[in-house]
Design a binder for these strands. Structure first.
Lengths: 245, 245
DNA sequence: CTGTAATGTTACCCATGGGTAACAAAAAGT
DNA sequence: ACTTTTTGTTACCCATGGGTAACATTACAG
């Protein structure tokens, strides 16, 4: 009975004692635990009781923070989407040819797929979302896809990428990247960085107009996909009024 | 009551009349309908009642042909696996460099992903299978992955493919291909053949050791991925004894 | 202290859907 | 014809798990 280990993703609810700390930290703790469980067991097999149990609370307590299971799923998915969005924003801010931007995107996206929230982006089934949320998700996916195509197209224009069908090329690249979310294991042979490096080379060398140095030119690529502070949410309460998100 | 359209994948059970025909045809009809429903709604949302309804029968009738829902899922998955296996067998029988074989595989696999049973291969969650079946499925996946790696490795040896990490290269290629199963729509802009041609070029030109003609050399590539007769099952009764499969 | 809001808990409800039992009606033997 | 097997049907069972109600507890304002 007393044996249970202290729950892997450190839980703000210590078994039976001090229960303080801010609301948002708890919300996030729920999401971290949920995304992990959804990934390892699948959304339908993972129950809210499971999620609650890992957090040392009971199912109804979850309803203090979320409307229901689908909302948890959606917010997990959103976390991943925000990560991608900030990656894109960062790349758009910088300069470079179409090929350069594409390589940055491939590299950062590959690393993202090795994270829980990143993987949730491609392993969760949009059909499990409420119709409204599914719409948002579809739109986000479309934006991401459009970005791949845009980089490729502009690369063709500026001469850094050889002519090809941007749509299918984008599908091929995104597919290879998304698949990482399905096979990557933390205890596997390759580290996220190694994978990202190799994929960046492999997926773009066929597109490069001329023979170019293989490795991604590390102009300023940070080791982490993005700076920590970029993705914070509005921390305001909730509970009162709008379901806006 | 009489209005219902005749159900898209022609059903051997006509609404309320002649019920003849062989057992196996019915089994296959169940699988065709099931795979379609599982793909369009997802395994957990698609109910056996749904499946039965589309076939003009009722749920318990399905149990004349299958042990339960997971068996149906597994057999759908198996259909896809058999298709891939026969593709591989065919390629292995033929000759050619590592690169040539890889291209054939990419081409055939791409076309397969545009079929229901092919897509089921990558869109069904192995965790929904019984542990025994899941083992079989994992083994099959491993064989397929091994084949990709083998072609790449042998291509490196025979000089047709430039040196690279066969494992990651195989993941990248398989990922791009598998993703087709997620985005391909019959009513989309690109036909399966177009997709297969483009992917064959796109995914292998970066690997080719020298500049080579882009398009796949159509030595003998049949338009259909494989000959119809290759994949028939043991048609014997069942019911008595062995659960062997 | 004391009232109120925030957060938990225990004890339920109940829709869903896989699976089964018991029976009906064709097909197939004999 | 008659039994027997195959293949359906109708009518159930019941485990699961999301969601809710009612109550307990703690934090904090005043």
């Amino acid at each position: 009975m007393d044996s249970g280990s202290p729950a892997l993703p450190s839980s703000p609810w210590l078994p039976f004692e001090s229960r303080r700390r801010a609301r948002d930290e708890k919300r996030e703790a729920v999401l971290r635990t949920a995304v992990q469980l959804f990934l390892e067991q699948g959304y339908h097999r993972a129950t809210l009781n499971d999620v609650a149990e890992r957090l040392n609370i009971t199912k109804p307590a979850l309803y203090n923070y979320f409307r229901g299971k689908h909302e948890i799923l959606f917010e997990c998915w959103s976390m991943g989407a925000e990560l991608v969005d900030s990656v894109i924003t960062e790349i758009n801010a910088g300069g470079g040819s179409g090929l350069t931007k594409l390589r940055k995107l491939v590299h950062a996206y590959a690393e993202l797929m090795a994270t829980d929230f990143g993987a949730s982006l491609v392993r969760f089934d949009l059909r499990d979302l409420a119709e409204k949320d599914a719409g948002i998700a579809r739109a986000a996916k479309k934006r991401i896809d459009a970005t791949f195509r845009k980089y490729i197209s502009s690369g063709i224009v500026d001469g850094s990428i050889k002519p090809c069908d941007p749509k299918l090329a984008a599908f091929a690249i995104a597919g290879a990247l998304n698949w990482i979310g399905h096979w990557y294991r933390r205890d596997g042979a390759s580290s996220p960085t190694e994978i990202a490096d190799e994929f960046t080379a492999r997926l773009t060398e066929g597109l490069a107009a001329a023979a170019v140095p293989n490795r991604i030119p590390r102009e300023k690529t940070p080791s982490a996909p993005l700076s920590r502070e970029t993705r914070r949410k509005a921390p305001g309460k909730k509970r009162t009024g709008g379901a806006s998100r």
